[in-house]
Design a protein around this nucleic acid. Structure first.
Length: 972
DNA sequence: TAACGGAAAATTTTT
DNA sequence: TTTTCCGTTA
């Protein structure tokens, strides 16, 4: 009998049944999966019956490649090539294309899923698509969901985010309810709430020498007190929640019961459902909907389900799956005589994609979830027939990457305090962690862990990083030891640049390192993703496009003039001289006007426009071609106008793209911890361990959020009291967030674990403003941070040999100066209405005006360019007539202005300016059907007049308000 | 030592 | 907008 002392062997050789495999960092996971795959084939199973799922395309390709090496004689290569070795989304897309054309009907949607749908990959793009849909939907349903729209204040992105979130949780809308009655989840669980409330609100005591113990403020009280001092709720005094040292229990019930919740649930269902329908009509799908529709197909269509069921299934990186993917997987497992053959392999300690809705509970609660989902999937009909009670657990014990010193150290990372005196359950963590992996590589004579603290500036920290790199490269004591497959020492050699990886929590720091490396002649490659539309190339493209739209756009001129190397006083002069452009003279350099005119001449071809702009500056590298590529993609869809392109670039600034700006062969690599997952290096320098960066403290709560205990909630509320009304936070939601939103520090700690376990031999930490992680980790391991590290930064060789020319790192966008809108200035949020209905009416008028403004903007632009406007819309006809009757010398529409006042810059847009011989007239359109709020509008136009008066000091300035609906003009 | 409040600084990425 | 750090006060 063969003894299998090694758990890796156990997995590779046990083929039948359900296996949950805890495969820590560097335990040879992929290798074992391939061995197991080959063993299954050896046992006579066809590759077509073995499902192998990973999370990324790359990983799937690699697995497929490895599977073809040492292939069994029983199969041929073509069989492997066609085998289902892929990632979740590719699998779902395949199901949809082959068998999913009717899948939307399960939600009560008539639209078909065509086989040539376009997948929207880019959030910025989808957000734009969604914006258009949202405005349409809002118009149609305003009266029904007025409460929501008033609170939402056109923040459509919040709605899109909650839709995508719900889809990954397996919560889908149907025409008149929710799939699998998931809507029941939304009302929350009051009993759990009550328990939590009591638990949080238990009295806390402090020991006192004189009188024994004394009650002090409990943590719940402190949180509310904090909110009370910083938040403002118009119709509720949150101080009333505070009794002595505790939260007033009289409010217990009231906090949970929110009478707008049911409307929010219905709104969410309605817009979610309609959006799916809208996307299908446009032949679009996003990744969430692909999985959703594939799941529904398998769920409802027995034939298709049987077709896609596999005898053997394996999933790699199981900690990166979300809830719906787990369920989808269960539907694809074939019942083999009442048993399932499934192996999921992963490591909860490396679950770092929570923001993408992946959940490590899929591993930690694996057995429970199997049972729970089996029940869910069998709710109305038997779908899962195999037994899920018997789960075999395997834990890999050996590590083939790091020194034992580093492995021992890695355990500390999960017990590191993220903030001072953090109360976290580190005991449970300790238990879960289990045994420390045993090193199978003899490296402990060549290993080191140190902490370096620089002076308090980012530049000083970057200095330290480069000093350390120089030391590592030039000092003989640092040696890289390499091993062969059997674990025998193959080579010992000095360190090379490419042995070193500088990790950071943020992309930004990596980019700075890369740039600095160029200046110091130390080769550094950036291995992360780029905010393409925040690069200086994109900023210039956007600036020129804006200038094409409006030649007096100061915001557009600034980056252009900066690039032409005008200094600040000169730029200010030119911008303040924009007034003359409207008449005869201008300070704008002639060259810029000429180039703008040239661009306007080819504006029918926006791709050429972009190309021309990039050529002007000689931009010709990976960044510029990525820009052209992406814009080309947009133009080929239906979003083609200049205005829309500008909007799209604007909303894509935060989207990241994988762009290769690495051009040097032998270089230090710098990347984010997230992107380094799965990689290994002899040296890891974990940099930028600074306060508020790592651990990161930012936590955005969506305006609409879902948490299991409180259910679906809305953070905003349109509140009215006495003479005022404004959009406030919903105080009940705020309290519930404080009660139930989990700290995400556990995930930050796992990120720390991932970073540390990348290192084979040498591990260093750097910081200039030490975060709690840096401090506490040094403390836990008894290391004193080195504060006076010196080493001369020298490149190893004088000249770095590059494969091709070095591409400079793209500049990041500069922080823009503080701008204030006219609306800020008017303090528009506070209206002078005296009752709720009136206040709502004011608000409705102003938000409607916003929607309308989009239309008017385009229209005004077209009229100014004498483009024919086809519309039967009464208002547009009236507007046309109104404009033609003005008989001015010159008209300017949608004039953006920047107007310095005190220490602020006011930004605004004037609908229309008419120039006459003796005067200038400022005109503002209003779509209201009455003149109730005339006084308010007068203030607004008054500000516009001030602005214009200040620019044209020698001319009279008049103002008019044109109520389009009433067809009435009023002088102001 | 508890309580308060001002200052400072703020993200990750795959499909 | 939200959160932590940290100095001041009682």
């Amino acid at each position: 009998m063969k003894t299998t002392s090694n758990p890796q062997d156990t997995l590779a050789e046990s083929l039948n049944g359900i296996y949950l495999v805890d495969a820590g960092a560097g335990t040879g996971k992929t290798h074992t999966i391939i061995r197991r795959y080959q063993n299954i084939i050896e046992s006579g199973v066809s590759p077509a019956d073995i499902l192998l799922i990973t999370f990324t395309r790359n990983a799937a390709d690699q697995l497929k490649e490895s599977a073809m090496v040492n292939i069994s004689e029983k199969v041929n290569i073509t069989e492997i090539l066609e085998a289902p070795i892929l990632n979740f989304h590719a699998l779902c897309a395949r199901i949809l294309k082959n068998s999913g054309s009717k899948s939307a009907k399960y939600l009560g949607i008539d639209e078909e899923v065509t086989s040539n749908f376009t997948i929207i990959e880019n959030f910025g793009f989808e957000n734009e698509v969604f914006r258009k849909f949202f405005l349409m939907f809002k118009n149609k349903t305003y009266d029904k969901y007025e409460e929501i729209y008033l609170g939402l204040n056109n923040k459509h992105e919040a709605v899109l985010r909650i839709i995508k979130f719900l889809a990954t949780r397996g919560i889908f809308p149907t025409k008149d309810g929710w799939f699998n009655e998931a809507g029941n989840l939304f009302n929350g669980r009051m009993e759990d709430y009550n328990l939590r409330f009591d638990e949080l609100n238990e009295p806390a005591f402090v020991k006192n020498d004189k009188s024994g113990t004394k009650e002090k403020q409990n943590d719940f009280y402190k949180k509310i007190r904090d909110a009370a001092s910083r938040s403002f709720y118009l119709s509720f005094d949150i101080n009333s929640l505070l009794t002595e040292n505790r939260v007033n229990p009289e409010y217990k019930e009231e906090i949970f019961n929110d009478d707008t919740q049911s409307l929010l649930i219905e709104f969410t269902r309605d817009i979610y459902w309609s959006y799916i329908e809208f996307m299908l009509k446009k032949n679009y799908l996003n990744f969430e909907f692909i999985v959703m529709l594939a799941f529904l197909t398998l769920y409802y269509d027995e034939k298709v389900r049987n077709h896609y069921q596999y005898e053997y299934s394996m999933v790699d990186e199981f900690q990166d799956t979300d809830e719906i993917q787990f369920q989808l997987l269960m539907l694809m497992i074939k019942d083999s005589g009442g048993k399932a053959n499934l192996a999921v392999v992963g490591d909860w300690k490396q679950g770092i994609f929570g923001f993408r809705n992946t959940t490590i509970e899929n591993i930690m609660e694996f057995e429970n979830r199997l049972k729970k989902y089996k029940g869910l999937l069998n709710k109305d009909k038997s779908r899962i027939t195999y037994d899920v009670d018997n789960v075999n657990k395997i834990s890999f014990e050996y590590n083939y990457r790091s020194s034992q010193t580093i492995l021992n150290f890695s355990k500390e990372t999960l017990k590191t305090e993220a903030k001072k005196d953090e109360q976290a359950d580190f005991e449970t963590t300790e238990q879960r962690f289990g045994q420390i992996l045993k090193a199978r590589r003899e490296l402990d004579d060549l290993t080191d862990i140190q902490f370096y603290q620089s002076e308090e500036s980012e530049k000083a920290e970057i200095d330290i990083v480069f000093r350390k790199i120089s030391e590592l490269i030039n000092e003989k004591k640092y040696v890289c030891r390499e091993f062969d497959k059997e674990g025998k020492v193959k080579d010992e050699r000095p360190l090379r640049y490419s042995d070193i990886c500088v990790l950071s929590r943020t992309n930004n720091f990596c980019l700075k390192l890369q740039k600095e490396g160029l200046q110091r002649n130390i080769p550094v490659n950036f291995g992360g993703w780029l905010e393409l539309f925040s690069s200086d190339q994109a900023i210039l493209v956007l600036a020129w496009l804006r200038l094409m739209m409006n030649e007096n756009n100061a915001e557009a001129l600034v980056p252009i003039l900066e690039k032409e190397e005008y200094n600040f006083p000169e730029i200010r002069k030119i911008i303040s001289g924009l007034k003359d452009k409207a008449t005869l003279f201008t300070n704008i350099p002639e060259d810029i006007i000429k180039f703008r005119n040239r661009l306007c001449g080819i504006k029918e071809n926006l791709l050429r426009v972009t190309e021309t702009i990039l050529n002007r500056y000689g931009f010709n590298n990976n960044v510029s071609s990525a820009l052209l590529n992406e814009i080309d993609g947009w133009i080929k869809t239906d979003l083609i106008s200049l205005g829309e392109l500008i909007r799209l670039i604007d909303s894509s600034k935060k989207d990241t793209y994988e762009i290769d700006i690495n051009r040097t062969r032998e270089a230090v690599i710098t990347q984010t911890v997230h992107s380094a997952k799965g990689l290994e290096y002899p040296v890891i320098i974990l940099s930028n361990m600074n306060q508020s960066l790592f651990p990161n403290t930012r936590s955005n709560t969506n305006e609409i959020f879902y948490l299991p205990v409180p259910g679906l909630r809305f953070r905003k509320k349109f509140e009215t009291k006495d003479d005022y009304s404004l959009i406030c936070n919903n105080w009940k939601s705020d309290v519930l967030i404080k009660m139930f939103k989990p700290d995400n520090y556990d995930e930050e700690r796992r990120l720390l674990y991932v970073a540390v376990t990348r290192a084979k031999q040498y591990l260093y930490f750097t910081s200039f403003r030490p975060s709690q992680f840096f401090k506490h980790l040094a403390e836990l391991t008894g290391k004193e941070p080195i504060k006076d590290f010196q080493y001369e930064v020298v490149a190893k060789k004088k000249k770095i040999i590059n494969l091709t020319e070095t591409v400079p790192a793209p500049q990041l966008i500069k922080p823009s100066p503080e701008f204030h809108s006219v609306h800020d200035l008017m303090n528009e949020k506070i209206t002078g209405a005296s009752d709720i209905s009136e206040a709502k009416a004011v608000y409705r008028a102003s938000t409607e005006a916003m929607d309308h403004g989009v239309m008017i903007h385009q229209l005004a632009h077209r009229l100014a360019n004498k483009v024919k406007v086809d519309s039967d819309n009464e208002e547009i006809k009236k507007l046309k007539k109104f404009i033609s009757k003005l008989r001015a010398n010159k008209l300017r529409t949608e004039v953006d202005f920047l107007y310095p006042k005190d220490d602020k810059v006011i930004r605004g847009t004037i609908d229309l300016i008419a120039f006459y011989d003796d005067r200038i007239e400022v005109i503002d359109y209003k779509t209201d059907r009455n003149k109730k709020y005339l006084e308010k509008y007068k203030i607004q136009v008054g500000i516009y007049k001030d602005v214009i008066k200040n620019i044209y000091k020698d001319k009279a300035v008049t103002g008019k308000i044109y109520f389009i609906g009433l067809d009435e003009v009023l002088s102001v």
